[in-house]
Amino acid sequence: MSENKLLFNTGSLDELSQEIGEITSTEKSKLELNPDNADSGLAKLVLTLIELIRKLVEKQAMRRVDGGSLTDAEIERLGETLMKLEIKMEELKKHFNLTDSDLNINLGPLGDLM
């Protein structure tokens, strides 16, 4: 960006540079599928979708807990389910050698998925 386009800035430009870097780099969002890595490439895609759905379910569950619409027993059962889901996800990520940031794919101008 040319200097005269920066009209006002109160912070470090590092964040902006980092963001531009993420948008222009395709590494983070690229799904690499080839005969040698078909398993892990597909696992990344599938786990990304599962993680997104898990987080949405968790968010909705917390809204319901917060709203007081669940019984004590239901909250207990919900806690057990969410906890087991999270543990299972951790196991799967470890198995396929993936991290949280691997699953948080960058959607360009729309930002990160999660």
Partner: peptide, 15 residues
């Protein structure tokens, strides 16, 4: 709402 102390309830509280 607390019914009894449990690891699951602690988990819900944290979330």
């Amino acid at each position: 709402p607390e019914i009894k102390h449990s690891v699951y309830l602690d988990y819900v509280n944290q979330k």
